[in-house]
Design a protein around this nucleic acid. Sequence first.
DNA 1: ATTTGCATGTAATCTGTTACATGATTCA
DNA 2: TGAATCATGTAACAGATTACATGCAAAT
Lengths: 177, 177
Amino acid sequence: MRNLKYAILGLLNERSMTGYELMKEFESTLNEFWSAKHSQIYPELKKLCDEDCLVYDIEISGTSLEKKVYTITDKGREEFMEWLESDTVIDPSPKEIARLKIFFSHQLSGDKREALLNDLLLQHQSRLEHLLNNQKKFNHVPDVTQAEFSDYLVLLGAIMREETTCNWLKECIALCK
Amino acid sequence: MRNLKYAILGLLNERSMTGYELMKEFESTLNEFWSAKHSQIYPELKKLCDEDCLVYDIEISGTSLEKKVYTITDKGREEFMEWLESDTVIDPSPKEIARLKIFFSHQLSGDKREALLNDLLLQHQSRLEHLLNNQKKFNHVPDVTQAEFSDYLVLLGAIMREETTCNWLKECIALCK
DNA sequence: ATTTGCATGTAATCTGTTACATGATTCA
DNA sequence: TGAATCATGTAACAGATTACATGCAAAT
């Protein structure tokens, strides 16, 4: 499926970046729906250059530190747009260890089941708070044509997802009583 | 992490089954939070036998078709309970191609962006209907001590998740107008 | 001076999917 | 008798993580 390829092309279609900067994007902005470690990014960048989807310039930081700044090519842009416009089949439900444990939770004592649910709830509440903090950075809904508008949409989706997970866990705790 | 190991042990801790039956469980009941193909299940069963977590009896169907019915051992049960009772760190947000596309959707024309969102909404609505159908099989909330109660909890979680995804996509469509 | 962050890469391993491969049973 | 389902396995490949490995730059 080469999804990492398209994630990288999409990011570089907005601005040229180094592998390190791409990594930071995956750690921050894209974190709620995609991720990639540097050990996966660097080989993929190499491959994309071989495929003529990217080119790079070397910049020097300080006296000798080399940075490779990657830029998307016409071919890369074409392939990216083709992917973006192609039909999308929604992903199968993701694997979640937490739900797997809840599925087996009748094999736990009542106390331990409750402890599991409470612990999961705390973790999701903390994640939700973090997302709500990010949302504060948007003072208003960005204009529909801006890249920030898309950022806003996916952040909203992440917030709604976490809220629902919290509500579900609360409902589970209530039903167990 | 060996999560497939524990998913299999958990299922076999409820009743002895063949690899084929386990596969069917992953396709049906567990489908909303875990999955595994037969090509992954059979080697894992072999490994779990080597580790003395499982044993199997051969049953004959008809005149010659051999079925291996796997049963959990004390060691398997111990390791499963240890896993079930251990601390659970919630999974990082799952990768979703659909959200990745929405993140880049400002690079599409207004029409194509709307088409993307509408298409995704239809697919999630269809998945939601399917889940609501499954819920109908529960005439009432099962007793808290029964295995069916845990089934009910995870089904409820899946329903709430799909409902929220649908609501989010509707909100995205509304904001684009 | 030392630590943290910037910056790039490879190797080994694990997890999971698709394809290859075979054969029996059941139902229409 | 043919198709769908039951039943079990392996091989090749793709995707992703952890660990290995190196070195510069900036801040304390």
